[in-house]
Design a protein around this nucleic acid. Sequence first.
DNA 1: TGCGTTATTATCCACATGTATAATTGACGG
DNA 2: CCGTCAATTATACATGTGGATAATAACGCA
Lengths: 222, 222
Amino acid sequence: MSEPAIRRPYRREGEEKRRDALIAAAMALVAEGGPEAATVRAIAARAGVTPGLIRHYFQSKEELTHAAYRQVMEAMTHEAMRAAAAIPEADPAGRLAAFVAANFRPPVMTTLLVGVWAGYMHLGRNDPVMHAIHEATYLGYRDRLQELIAALPRPADPARDRREAIACNALIDGLWIEGGSLPDNFDQGEVLRIALDGIGAMLGIRFPESAYQIPPESETPA
Amino acid sequence: MSEPAIRRPYRREGEEKRRDALIAAAMALVAEGGPEAATVRAIAARAGVTPGLIRHYFQSKEELTHAAYRQVMEAMTHEAMRAAAAIPEADPAGRLAAFVAANFRPPVMTTLLVGVWAGYMHLGRNDPVMHAIHEATYLGYRDRLQELIAALPRPADPARDRREAIACNALIDGLWIEGGSLPDNFDQGEVLRIALDGIGAMLGIRFPESAYQIPPESETPA
DNA sequence: TGCGTTATTATCCACATGTATAATTGACGG
DNA sequence: CCGTCAATTATACATGTGGATAATAACGCA
């Protein structure tokens, strides 16, 4: 009945490593089974530790949730901005196309990221911290998009730019959700094509054929 | 210590009335506080009954959840189809505009509906029943949209129609989420205008000015 | 009016969750 | 090689959850 109570062996790790592992575990569980699956026990098990350790690195489970959500949102916008910044400023349409395209390939359009987004989305409606994270990343994303649109070579019209940024942002979001939720329903590159065609039509421009190409290394990301 | 155990008085109601009340209570709670707020005790309290009654009308709480989700999704598509059907077939663009516009006013674009949608969205990723409900309503919605697009007076091209239906659907979804989540960020009718402008641009048509008008009675719905 | 049906309430239960605290042990400096 | 510290584990706890079952009273009908 009373086992000899052999204590689980363990290794000491750096704080950053443990925090990252716990955040990653929480994200994966949310993506797979929704927020209700990300219990402290499940998170700890996936991270290879015992539940108590969570409270050692995070003041509460809520704090871990905030950290995970922030990481997800920041990863999305950061990736899109990085792609846009890789194109010279002399090519505004190319920058916009790169910004758009980044949303429709890994590491942005993955079942994990869409799943985490879906699982946490409703929390922004009540939790003020989550709402702040959402606002900071989401509206920041749209503002960045509007800047890229305003840089296009055409007469200036801020009000129009704002409306078009809202529309483009909505189109990207809708396609990202669909493409990430039901990846089997779309051919390779189809979502990107639809996005660029739609945004081009709404802005009255035409993206070069090169914008539609998918970087070959994106098929099997490291 | 032991109160006289006075039993709560109650009235017998019809089965349909009680089921509707429980579903409405569950929806309201999910919209306000997310799925975790919709406990059997909270649902019963809001519906004015005791928790045990839920199990009298639904085999499990899960079954009640399914019923609520189905009602939300069906209300959305039904409302849009009803609006489109009110326009004569001889006016394909008008039908499409009516279909689109229905999504951006009550009873479709409300914080309650968007909140419930957000709260339940991730469940479609795991629960097979929820997934089936989602698929039946969501894809059905898109198919209906594609039919309206295919009816436009222009050369037939099913593949193009499919892509454009996906794009229009994504745009509508994205705007609906934004408009329903942050209604204060948009002027009266602004979301509808952005939607019609964007869809018109993507389809290469121009909707009549009348399509942008908001029915006056929609401001304060019954 | 009185009776039976059953909608509704009240109570109990097994279990899961987040959290708090005590016990242990790995790693590092002397 | 030993002592110290904290990273980590183990255990306990209060609370809340969905579900099961028994008791009761509202309503329809004779």
